[in-house]
């Protein structure tokens, strides 16, 4: 296991692990978003889907632990790399001028922190129900439709999805670079893919809250 430790200790190794764990979460959010869209079909559809996910505790917790470990590795790498990066450039330029870095790239770090905090809130809100006034472990549709009557809630989720869009855009694009996919043939497709994911996932997620808020479903 010495090699793994060496890998994790290196800046490049951590970056690759961030890419891999990021990919795990990208897959998860796609699945999550697709599941949410069942709410548009009917309350029963999404409740049935939620019940299906909980069919087996073993499977459910395997996924949960897997996601959690991926997140820990992602965040731990981020914290360590950030510390490295900050100490690597102790003095700033009097005149700063970015030439290439996109807003998405430049907000990656703090956007990520925001998403992490928001994720905690989101779990307490919709998974455990601690922050939900009228929470039911079986009626997912009810949980959602109650929550998104409030404009404040919708706005907070919308803000989180903007952050997610930025994070996904740079993250997906970066993933290819970090994983070593460098052929000129992938250059354009990876831009498209990053753009598509960064738009489709947040839009998909926001469809349900807005539909509820504007009374289209519920």
């Amino acid at each position: 296991m010495k090699w793994l430790l060496r890998f994790y200790r290196s800046s490049v190794g951590k970056k690759i692990l961030m890419a891999v764990t990021g990919l795990v979460w990208v897959v998860f959010v796609i699945e999550h978003m697709a599941g949410n869209l069942l709410a548009l079909k009917s309350p029963e559809a999404i409740n049935r889907y939620a019940a299906f996910l909980k069919t087996s505790d073993e499977v459910l917790w395997t996924f949960r632990i897997g996601l959690f470990v991926a997140l820990v590795v992602h965040v731990d790498s981020m914290v360590k790399l950030t510390a490295l990066n900050w100490t690597s450039r102790p003095a700033r330029y009097a005149k700063v001028s970015y030439q290439a870095a996109s807003p998405a790239a430049r907000t990656m770090r703090w956007g990520g922190v925001f998403l992490l905090l928001w994720l905690v809130y989101h779990i307490l809100h919709f998974t455990t129900g601690h922050l939900h006034p009228d929470f039911s472990h079986t009626d997912v549709f009810n949980n959602v439709s109650v929550a998104f009557q409030s404009g404040g809630k919708v706005a907070s989720y919308a803000a989180a999805m903007v952050a997610l869009a930025f994070h996904l855009y740079h993250g997906v694009w970066s993933m290819f670079q970090t994983a070593g996919a460098n052929h000129p043939h992938v250059e354009k497709p990876r831009r498209w893919l990053a753009t598509a994911i960064a738009i489709l996932i947040p839009v998909g997620f926001l469809t349900v809250p807005f539909a509820i808020f504007f009374g289209i479903i519920g």
Binding site: R9, S10, S11, V12, K14, K15, L81, L84, N85, T87, S88, R89, Y98, Q99, A100, A101, A105, R106, M108, H170, W173, S174, Q177, T178
Partner: peptide, 14 residues
């Protein structure tokens, strides 16, 4: 590179 205290790549492209 790491020992020399260079930072990590965040794919800024600068």
């Amino acid at each position: 590179m790491d020992l020399e205290h260079f930072g990590g790549c965040t794919n800024y492209g600068e």
